[in-house]
Simulated assay, not measured.
Amino acid sequence: MTPPRRSGGAGRRHRARKARGASAVGRRFEVEVGPIAHGGHCVARVSTGAAAESLVVFVRHALPGEQVVVEVTEGTEGDKFWRGDAVEVIRPSPDRVAAPCAFAGPGRCGGCDFQHVELAAQRRLKAAVVREQLRRLAGLDVDLEVEHVPNPLVEVVAQQPSPDQGLRWRTRQRYLTLPDGRRGMRKHRSHDVIAVDECLLEAPRGPSYDVRGRSFEVADRGFWQVHPGAPETLVDAVLEALRPQPGESALDLYAGVGLFSRFLLEAVGPEGRVAAVEGDPTASALSERNCPRLQATAGDVAAVLREGLDPVWDAADLVVLDPPRAGAKRGVVEQVVARSPRAVAYVACDPAALARDVAIFAENGYSLSTLRAFDLFPMTHHVECVALLEKRR
């Protein structure tokens, strides 16, 4: 799965929208903050004086129920919504805390969304977003908690149990270089770079490629989960959901270097079989080295499912889906259900894409049986989910 882009890093910037009217940037309003929304901001409404109806502003650095002064950071007259920062807190939420990082906050580094939020409350907000997306896009009401994932690297370095602080989990970190040689990170939705002495999310050392006592080979810049507890947590969740049996067949889609394939092969045994499909040729080649007996194919997942697999894979007992943030989408989902698996484990880092695809599965006779969510990206709005979809009887 493609890791979430951090606004504070060196990733691709957003595309500027065409202005509809005079700029609203810099205008300030006192508002009562509404519910959390997908993307790391809350919903508020302001009266602009231009019309009888109020206008939605997506506010960062705020919490539901707070009274704040919001400063517009993006928007023009005639837009359907604006974006803004809470630059003054008049009535704080009991869940508000002082940000541990000196570079977090309005106008500063854009890498974190929730440093002003107590850690347990961050997880409640993420759970609310997942529930809202499934309700809105899939018509489902789910009971969900976002689970804490231990960070073994922090405890190893400290040589003692460490309290959960939501820091030091990012085993791969990118900085920009300022003209004077200092390190920097971008502001939120901006090309502007600010100097950053230290990122508190950066782990004390790089990733380990050992999972459940098995070693994996990964390319220097190839994908691997950035939270040190993520690979084992996700493998455990997928295997618990699917309960693969000896002799079964399994498809691992968007397979990367074979993280799930390795353990699926062990579970189905010598009488079973596993095929992996991955878009990156280097990762696909490494998956064959990491997973003896794996049938690996490099290529676009939808195209390979449509025409690139041996006919023996026209049916499969199990499927693992671990797509990038955009999700699997209809073409892949329909190719999956055409193979009539008894169970599908869907690993998702975007709740909106997951909810959309769950709805497509439902159209094709598959129901959401279980859903778990994991806090693999503390201090940010990102959350990882593992959904089990099973054929309706």
Rank of each mutant, 00 (worst) to 15 (best):
A24T: 14
A19P: 08
E30S: 10
R27L: 07
F29T: 03
I36V: 14
G34F: 10
R15T: 07
I36E: 00
R12W: 07
G8P: 05
R28K: 13
R20V: 04
P35A: 11
R13S: 14
G34Q: 03
V25Y: 01
G9K: 11
R20W: 02
R28T: 07
G8K: 13
R15P: 00
G21Y: 09
V33Q: 02
P3T: 14
G11E: 12
R20Q: 09
R13Q: 10
H14F: 02
G34T: 02
I36F: 13
R27P: 02
A19N: 04
A10N: 14
H14E: 00
E30Y: 07
P4W: 08
S7A: 15
I36C: 06
V25M: 07
A37P: 00
P4Q: 06
E32H: 10
A19T: 13
E30D: 14
G26C: 05
P4R: 07
G8S: 04
S7Q: 15
S23M: 03
R12A: 05
A19F: 10
G11V: 05
G26E: 04
G21W: 06
R17D: 02
A19R: 15
A19I: 05
R15G: 00
S7I: 04
T2D: 14
R6A: 11
A37G: 09
G8W: 12
G26V: 03
P35R: 12
E30V: 08
V25P: 07
T2H: 15
T2S: 13
K18H: 06
R12C: 01
P3M: 11
T2C: 08
V31D: 02
V33M: 01
R17K: 12
E30N: 08
A10T: 15
R13D: 02
R17P: 07
F29G: 05
E30Q: 03
S23Y: 09
R5M: 08
R20P: 02
R6C: 15
G34W: 12
R5Q: 14
P4M: 02
A19V: 06
A37C: 02
G9C: 11
R17L: 06
S23Q: 03
G8R: 12
R15I: 00
V33H: 02
I36S: 07
R6I: 09
G26I: 01
V25C: 07
K18F: 01
R20I: 04
G8M: 05
A37M: 12
S7K: 15
H14P: 09
E30I: 03
G21F: 09
P35F: 06
F29S: 06
K18S: 06
V31Q: 02
P3N: 15
